[in-house]
Nucleic acid binder design. Structure first.
Lengths: 211, 211
DNA sequence: TGATGTGAAAGCCTTCACAGCT
DNA sequence: AGCTGTGAAGGCTTTCACATCA
């Protein structure tokens, strides 16, 4: 069975909603309620879950802690991932201090090439030279947050891949070239800003649109 | 004609590639070359452009500055957008100092509710109280970068909408509820991190996948 | 009875082949 | 001759209706 990649993004949303429901002390929910909170249809919720299994009770609904546990399992959040930050500029430093990584993600390395920055204390550690990647990554760090300037992103990605990184969260506004077994997720706020620009100017773009 | 929303994201990519080509002094290009750089097919490039018009020359290709100008026009980057940042924590402050907004986007306001932060100088301005949104937004600010904590995002979004904001770039990990005429783009690095977690654990997820 | 789980239909996006220009 | 532009085919994702089961 083929799972649409958009479904994975929605599972993340459902999980967040379940955590909110749990915080509110709500124990039982339904595809209807999840759908409303996630702004999708109930059909979509049930189909997304059905790609991975059956987690509800017919005629009743879903038990919040059960579905939450299952989603965490599906998404791989029931284990601990080692992270590193590559590029300790403004964004990298802000991320190093970010308190919201949760149980599943742990910052374990901070890298740059600027001698000014190396040795500086950030977040829970110390900035090291990029050359140390091959020593620090294997067995300890699976995912890199890539926060270097645009021009340096591809070079840094190459070093990360050579060091054995398993996935890259790319904040630079470029399309990275990496082996297909290394997944890349892009976090591109400038692209988002530009899409907004387009959508504001084309409010009816979802309807007819002939030039 | 219906334009797929993914096409808009790709246009942003094509524009960046054109800017790089221009910086390298390359004057002419082709759907083939753009496709390679963007990691899509040449069919896709031509189809994406065809939604908006005909910008190339058959038998020849595209002229870099021409296509660049046309894409900037389509995306609404040939005008200046006023931005504000709502939530002057670590991320908001990093964005206030960001030098890469370019010609088309200008930071014109910085807001928070924390008395500690109000009056502080950031980037090109001073932090003001959120209550001033209705005074500052109309006619000057079209897009808000929403960088408040998760719990406060919906409330802040409501204030922005009431003040007449035209679009929201949401950095908080929540699904915002806004009137459908106000577009929202999400910049959600935690979701990206979670998708990476899934993709690393499911390298063959694109193929068969039975539970 | 009532909400889930799912095969099938509908709809949308991508791929393709080739017509159309220069 | 060659690359763009595009209608149509193909494939994937979403929607739907209903069978299923507590």
């Amino acid at each position: 069975m083929k799972v649409p990649s958009a479904a994975i993004s929605r599972l993340v949303t459902y999980l967040r909603i379940l955590e909110e429901l749990e915080a509110k002390g709500i124990h039982r929910t339904s595809s209807e309620q999840l759908a409303e909170e996630a702004q999708v249809t109930a059909f979509q919720v049930r189909k997304d879950l059905s790609y991975f299994g059956s987690y509800g009770t017919r005629g009743v609904g879903y038990t919040v802690p059960v579905l939450k546990r299952e989603l965490r399992h599906i998404l791989g959040l029931n284990r601990k991932w080692g992270l590193c930050i590559v590029g300790m500029g403004r964004l990298g430093s802000a991320l190093a201090d970010y308190p919201g990584f949760g149980e599943s993600f742990e910052l374990r390395g901070f890298f740059d090439i600027d001698p000014e920055k190396i040795g500086r204390k950030v977040g829970s550690g110390v900035v090291e030279h990029l050359d140390l990647l091959p020593v620090r990554v294997p067995g300890r760090i699976e995912i890199a947050l890539l926060t270097v300037p645009r021009e340096e992103a591809q070079g840094a990605a190459d070093l990360l891949v050579a060091a054995g990184i398993k996935g890259i969260l790319n904040f630079a506004p470029v399309v990275l070239e990496v082996p297909k077994e290394v997944p890349v997720e892009n976090v591109d706020f400038l692209a988002g800003l530009t899409r907004l620009s387009f959508f504001i100017l084309n409010p009816k773009w979802r309807e007819e649109m002939m030039e």
